[in-house]
Amino acid sequence: MTYIEYIEYIAFFFMILGIVFSAYRFLKGPTAGDRTVALDTLTTIMVAGLVLLAYVFQRFIYVDVALVYGVLGFIGVIVIARYLEGAL
C-alpha cells in the first residue's frame, strides 16, 4: 500500500466512527434540538466524505454532488430551526 492509501483508510475509519456517534445522538437525543444538531454534524461529515470519495474514485462529479448536498442540508437545518422557533 502506498502512503496515500494508508491515509485514506485511517480517514475513513475516523469518519465512520464520527457518523456512528452522531447517528447515536440523532436516534437518542432527548429533544428535537439535539437531533437537529446531530443532523447538522452528519451533513458536514458527509460532505467531507463525498469529497474524499471523489478523490478515491477519481470522479470529479462527486464534488458537485457534495456541494449540492451541503446546500440542501444547510437549508434543511435552517428550515427546521425556524419551525422550532415558531416562525413558520
Binding site: 469518519m15 464520527g18 456517534f21
Partner: peptide, 11 residues
C-alpha cells in the same frame, strides 16, 4: 478526519 470525529464525540 480526526477533527470531524472529535466533533461527533463532543456531540
Amino acid at each position: 478526519s480526526i477533527f470531524l470525529f472529535l466533533g461527533a464525540l463532543g456531540i
